[in-house]
Design a protein around this nucleic acid. Structure first.
Length: 664
RNA sequence: GCUGACGUAGCUCAGCUGGCAGAGCAGCUGAUUUGUAAUCAGCAGGUCGUGGGUUCGAAUCCCACCGUCAGCUCCA
């Protein structure tokens, strides 16, 4: 490379290659600011940071290597994180001015903004946030340059003598040769490796969003800091768009829509338990039937008990690793809480597998169970349908030979992804490896991770690596589904398990007539029906495709004269299994149409004199307003029956419906 | 569980510094007989989350508990 000698001595001259192909030779340690200034003064003003050989650094960090030299302006996506990180410092600057007692933690940029953690005696209030925001605008107006200094460990300790959290962080540098740097903007100094924008005026469009507690260093045994979340953008339109997206998310919130559409209820007497209303139960059962239908061929559904003695959980390892999350039940004969509601189906499937002899020819064997599971989640973790204490998974365990892993993973992945396709959902794959808290030897983990990874890679799909995020018994592939406003949720999972077969002494008889150990794969598609329905509600903004809609067709006679005709049509639809309802209430058509739209009924058939005479319906498709279609009752009937049969995504949700506003 | 905010009619929300609990929608009754997002009128509806305390007097102030929410931790 141009960087020169392979010796340890740093090169004295660096060679920078600009995007136009020209090169600059500069002394080692030159500031990028000086290089950019020679290119152009306007560019210097516009530059947020630079990338040297692909690594982003700021303009005040000395250049230490040669390579491609790219100036990052606000057009470059990498510049946004730099600006947001600086915004975090500006926030801290403002907080320190108004609350000099605040000790500072960390303040990074995150995916959609930034945060900063403070240790304060009095937690922040919404009024405080307003005050901080106003103070930040002053800091911005003062245009403080971000000044970088590289200091020794002992010097750093002196500078942060009043900041215990920073001192603790500095302990990590003991014995390391990493450069310790500080950044100062006006009155505020922070231990930080950067990069930063040139001065505080580069922060323009931002908003403080919320304040909440967060454990120091993410450790629940440590003190709780106060974290302020915020976001910032280069352009006002981007900030406005983000804030509007947050508003839209609120309207689509499954808890809000669940109430408006009467899908489910939560009662204080069952925290984390869900009451499914008649309409919600239809959605739930329809989904379950769908999974069941798709699994019909290769999977064997079984039902197993909900309650087991601790002996089973000791064998499975849950008693040691998962007991805190289990609902323990008093056995009145022993006087102990040594029974438990099952938090997972795995052990019961293993028990059943082990109860029979299996030939290598039978494998893979797939058991599926939709039973209710109970997990005693922390009260503060509960949230709507996405985090509950009682739920059901479409839970499958596959027993297979090691040589079948790749094929099986491929099969399960296709199953899961095509299931999501039905709903127009796309998944991001994540590969999660051994966690700190785990069972099984490292050797087993090595094999499991290698096997699952190989199977995943053989599919050729992109995935993200999540170190240490696996289940306590094995590595896994998680399927994160992104809803229509870009939020990710973990739903499906494929987990490879070499541990359970050992613990449950699972066997099959091989070709050699000897006993062999099968491997277990845990699989869920929906994640849980509860969470999946929450995602569907938000994804469709409550406007389910016709096959999933609790009410598929609403028939509206214009006047009592046509009630009989309308009723006959409803009967015909119902006989074909269509969820059709007659709305012949003594209300205006406008009133009834409005209500049908608000309830997001996919199809409303209006029947008046013309329709009754000509045997047609005036069809109003959800979300399309006055654009009615006149078609024969037969044509409509066929259309609906066909859409239900094919599980079509029609009628497409008009997500921008402003109805929720009108009801507020 | 931890930090903070919140809890008023079935729903959405008013009710400022303590002084007789309100609106809209939904519901009920009646009139109206409706051609694609709210016809009109009347009626009814609340231990102000629960339990304590302060006060002549508490939806309002204080404490505890329960629940919900935003996060943290954990997680399908």
């Amino acid at each position: 490379m141009l960087a020169g000698s392979p010796s340890d001595a740093p090169p004295t001259t660096l060679v920078l290659t600009l995007p136009d192909g020209s090169t600059r030779e500069v002394p080692f340690g030159t500031f990028p600011r000086e290089v950019v200034a020679t290119i152009g003064a306007r560019l210097l003003q516009a530059s947020i940071a630079v990338a040297v050989d692909g690594d982003v650094q700021d303009l005040m960090t000395p250049l230490r290597k040669s390579g491609a030299f790219v100036v990052l302006t606000d057009k470059d996506p990498r510049a946004l994180a730099v600006m947001r990180h600086s915004a975090a410092h500006i926030l801290a600057t403002a907080v320190r001015r108004l609350r000099p007692d605040a000790h500072i933690g960390f303040g990074p940029a995150i995916d959609d903004g930034f945060y900063y953690d403070f240790e304060v005696a009095q937690p922040f209030t919404p009024d405080d946030l307003d005050a901080f925001e106003a103070e930040m605008r002053k800091v911005i107006a003062e245009k403080y340059p971000f000044v970088r200094e590289e200091v020794s460990l002992s010097e750093a300790r002196k500078r942060f003598v009043d900041d215990p959290l920073k001192l603790e962080r500095l302990d990590d540098f003991e014995g390391s040769d990493e450069v310790i740097s500080t950044y100062t903007d006006g009155p505020f100094i922070d231990l930080c490796r950067g990069p930063h924008v040139q001065d505080s005026s580069y922060l323009r469009h931002f908003k403080l969003l919320s304040a909440a507690g967060a454990y120091w260093r993410g450790d629940e045994k440590r003190q709780m800091l106060q974290r302020i979340y915020a976001t910032a953008y280069f352009k006002k339109e981007d900030l406005d768009a983000r804030l509007q997206q947050l508003e839209e998310a609120k309207k689509r919130d499954h808890r809000v829509l669940g109430k408006q559409l009467d899908l489910f209820q939560l009662f204080p007497v069952s925290p984390g338990g869900v009451f499914w209303t008649p309409k919600g139960t239809i959605v739930y059962n329809t989904l379950e039937a769908f999974v069941r239908e798709r699994q019909h061929e290769m999977f064997r559904e079984i039902k197993t008990p909900l309650l087991y003695t601790k002996k089973l959980w000791e064998q499975s390892g849950h008693w040691g690793k998962y007991r805190e999350n289990m609902f323990l039940v008093l056995d009145k004969e022993t006087g102990e809480h040594d029974m438990s509601l099952k938090p997972m189906n795995c052990p019961s499937h293993h028990l059943y597998y082990a109860s029979q002899r299996h030939s290598y020819r039978e494998l893979p064997i797939r058991y599926v169970t939709f039973d209710v599971l109970h997990r005693n989640e922390l009260s503060g973790a509960l949230s709507g349908l996405t985090r509950v204490r009682q739920f059901a998974q479409d839970d499958c365990h596959v027993y297979l030979r090691e040589d079948q892993i790749a094929d099986e993973v491929q099969l399960l992945m296709n199953f899961i992804l095509s299931y999501y396709d039905t709903f127009g959902l796309t998944a991001r794959l994540k590969f999660a490896t051994r966690p700190a808290e785990r069972i099984g030897s490292d050797e087993l983990w090595d094999r499991a991770e290698a096997a699952l990874r190989a199977a995943l890679e053989s599919t050729g799909r992109a995935y993200e690596l999540k170190e240490g995020d696996g289940a306590f018994y094995g590595p896994k592939i998680d399927f994160d589904v992104t809803d229509s406003i870009g939020r990710a949720w973990q739903l499906g999972t494929i987990q490879l398990d070499y541990n359970a077969p050992e613990r449950f002494d699972l066997q099959y008889t091989g070709e050699d007539n000897a006993a062999h150990r099968p491997v277990v794969i845990h699989r869920a598609v929906s994640g849980s029906f509860e969470r999946f329905i929450a995602i569907l509600i938000e994804h469709f903004a409550g406007a389910f495709p016709v096959w999933l809609s609790p009410e598929q067709v609403r028939v509206l006679p214009i006047a009592p004269d046509y009630n009989e005709h309308a009723e006959a049509f409803v009967r015909r639809l119902k006989a074909a299994g269509i969820r059709a309802h007659l709305d012949a209430r003594n209300e205006t058509l406008n009133y009834r149409v409005r209500e049908g739209e608000m309830q997001k009924v996919p199809y409303m058939c209006v029947i008046g004199r013309r329709e009754a005479e000509e045997n047609t319906v005036a069809l109003r498709v959800r979300g399309t307003g006055k654009k009615q279609e006149i078609l024969s009752t037969d044509a409509f009937f066929d259309r609906v029956v066909d859409e239900v049969r094919t599980r079509a995504l029609t009628p497409m949700a008009d997500a921008t419906s402003d109805v929720s506003e009108a009801t507020a």
